[in-house]
Simulated scan of single mutants.
Amino acid sequence: MRLTNYSDYALRSLIYLAVKPERGVLANISDIAHSYDISKSHLTKIIHQLGQLGYIHSVRGKNGGIRLARDPKDINLGVLIKQIEPDFDLVECFATTLPNTDNSINGITGSTNHDTTYDNSYGEANTPGLPLTLIDETAVKGQNAKAGCAISPACQLKGVFFEALTAFITVLEGYTLADIISNEVELASLLS
């Protein structure tokens, strides 16, 4: 499993904002982009989504900027990753969704037509446990769609992949932003 650069940059941005030494002073996207030597235009999209999800607060105007909207101990890494990663399809036949009954969780849509055999839901949208569910890709693609793998309808490897993915997410859900900035002074000095 490999997270996208989008998720990597989102995490880096939150780390930057969490260790910024001048707590009252707003940061700007250019400073974050410069600190990590990443594209400002790409980072702008990420910051926008983090704002929509309630992780970052933006202040407009001449003296505007951005800051964390939540305390670092209230930013769960697993929940964040599930909200911003586009999919968790480890292989072609492996399909997951983030289901719920009203088809929206903080702007993320999911299907309610899924196989709940592997459903690990045990929480609300903003807490660890936002469900990941293994879905039947033939239901998504249609019964007459050609499967990418001849054994897909009977393959049990999907269950193994799902178990591994669930373990990956469960580990991330065990950590908050506060946990990964415990060496705040060292991080701040590297980002200045």
Rank of each mutant, 00 (worst) to 15 (best):
A10K: 01
Y118Q: 06
L90Y: 07
T117R: 14
L68K: 02
N28M: 03
Y55N: 00
D119I: 07
I46W: 02
G142Q: 08
T170Y: 12
H42K: 14
L14K: 04
Q156V: 06
L190M: 14
T170K: 15
T44W: 08
L98H: 10
Q156M: 04
L177Y: 04
I135N: 06
R23T: 11
G61E: 10
A10I: 05
G174R: 15
R23A: 10
L43W: 11
V91I: 15
K146L: 14
T117Y: 12
T97N: 10
I46A: 00
I169Q: 07
N76S: 09
L14P: 12
I32T: 09
I32N: 01
D74V: 00
K158Y: 09
L157M: 12
T4A: 14
K158C: 06
M1S: 09
L190A: 14
G24D: 09
Q83A: 13
L3V: 15
S152C: 08
K146Q: 15
A95C: 05
Q49T: 14
I75G: 00
S7L: 09
F161Y: 09
I15A: 00
D89Q: 03
C93N: 05
F168G: 03
G123L: 08
K158F: 06
A188P: 04
N183A: 06
L130M: 15
S182H: 10
S39I: 04
A125H: 12
G148H: 07
L80V: 06
S7N: 11
L187G: 00
A139K: 11
P131G: 07
Y122H: 13
I151H: 02
L14Y: 04
G54P: 13
F162C: 10
F168Y: 12
Q52E: 03
L26F: 14
S30F: 12
D37V: 12
S30I: 05
T133P: 01
Q143T: 02
K20F: 11
Y118M: 08
A95M: 11
T138D: 10
H48A: 08
G159D: 02
D136E: 11
S192V: 05
R2H: 12
L187T: 04
L177P: 05
E124H: 09
T176R: 13
T166S: 15
T127E: 07
A33P: 08
E124Y: 13
I66T: 03
F168N: 06
G148M: 03
K73C: 00
N103E: 15
V140S: 05
L80K: 05
A69K: 05
T116E: 04
I56D: 01
A125Q: 09
L191T: 10
Y16G: 01
I46T: 06
I108S: 04
A27N: 14
S121G: 14
K73A: 15
D136M: 04
M1H: 11
K62I: 12
I56R: 00
Q49D: 10
I84T: 00
V140W: 09
T112F: 03
L11W: 01
L191D: 03
I75A: 01
A164N: 10
S104G: 02
N76V: 02
S35Q: 06
T101H: 15
L190E: 13
A188F: 02
